[in-house]
């Protein structure tokens, strides 16, 4: 079944992959290599002097219980963001797929939030939940619930999860919607004739057929929640209250740009690189087996 193209020489294939190799080298291998190298030193901010400490930065990091706690926070955060952005997206895609009239309008409107930059999304949600002027917190107050994400860690976590997942729903929706369109009608119709109701058809036929898309989105969303949610956290909570929303990437920023501790910050980037690499390998190794292409 596999399609293969055979090249006769070496030059053309090398030339074809050259741009990708070049881009990866400049924007990934070089900076990643720099991070690994710098993680072995404690430099001063201005680069005037530097000391070799070997694994010292890593020992320092893992000796800090707050750094270890931030792994737990990150895990919780990324699971919640991934679920909160994929499940509603799938639900909306299924609904939009069933529409006969006006599905174009819904589709367009549902994609809009993706155009909002994370930092802007953060500010929007912050306004709605602002403890003093926020619309939502005001209504909650009317219902007798005292919303205070400034002091309540769970509420803060909930808020950054929702704000991070919101724009992401659009992205996921787009992929799910396209995948749903590709599900062969004949299979579904056959099931319907056999008497399978909508949700049964969905769980036994559609969902398995969507698995390649779901798997792709799972990987992409986990990576997203690890790295790109920085803007949302920075604008809404700055990692607080206490350390309730300090995820790993936020600590990289905080040590590097607030504390000017480049050694520790580089060591954390290396750790983050390994964690995400490992997660992706695990996902491919274990989950991909259950994916039917």
């Amino acid at each position: 079944m596999e399609k293969r193209v055979t090249f006769r020489g070496w030059m053309l294939p090398l030339l074809l992959i050259a741009p990708q190799v070049f881009i990866s080298a400049v924007f990934f291998f070089y900076p990643a290599g720099q991070a690994v190298w710098q993680s072995l030193f404690i430099p001063d901010p201005f680069g005037l002097s530097t000391q070799f400490v070997g694994m010292g930065n890593f020992e320092y990091l893992f000796g800090d219980r707050h750094y270890r706690a931030s792994f737990y926070t990150t895990a919780l955060f990324s699971i919640l963001v991934t679920l909160a952005s994929m499940i509603p997206a799938l639900f909306l895609a299924v609904l939009a797929d069933r529409l006969i009239k006006g599905s174009g309008v819904y589709r367009t409107l549902l994609i809009w939030p993706y155009a909002v930059a994370p930092a802007v999304a953060g500010v929007l949600w912050l306004f709605m939940f602002n403890t003093r002027v926020g619309v939502v917190s005001w209504y909650l107050g009317q219902l007798g619930y005292d919303w205070n994400h400034v002091l309540n860690g769970s509420e803060a976590m909930g808020l950054v999860v929702v704000a991070s997942a919101w724009g992401r729903i659009s992205y996921n929706f787009l992929f799910f919607f396209a995948a749903l369109q590709a599900v062969p009608r004949s299979v579904i119709e056959a099931a319907a004739i056999d008497g399978a109701r909508f949700w049964r058809r969905f769980f036994t036929i559609v969902l398995p057929l969507l698995s390649p898309t779901t798997f792709f989105l799972l990987v992409v969303n986990v990576v997203y929640s690890f790295f790109e949610t920085f803007g949302v956290i920075h604008t809404i909570t700055s990692g607080g209250p206490q350390q309730a929303t300090t995820i790993l990437v936020y600590k990289v920023y905080s040590d590097g740009f607030v504390g000017q501790d480049l050694g520790s910050s580089s060591a954390q980037s290396v750790v983050l690189l390994l964690v995400v690499g490992l997660l992706t390998v695990l996902q491919f190794k274990f989950i991909e087996k259950r994916v039917h292409y």
Partner: peptide, 21 residues
């Protein structure tokens, strides 16, 4: 040194006091 970050730590700990933790 690193006082901007130390302030961040102080903020976190004070929040624990205000929350009664």
């Amino acid at each position: 040194g690193s006082f901007d970050q130390i302030r961040g730590i102080i903020d976190e700990e004070l929040e624990a006091v205000w929350a009664g933790d």
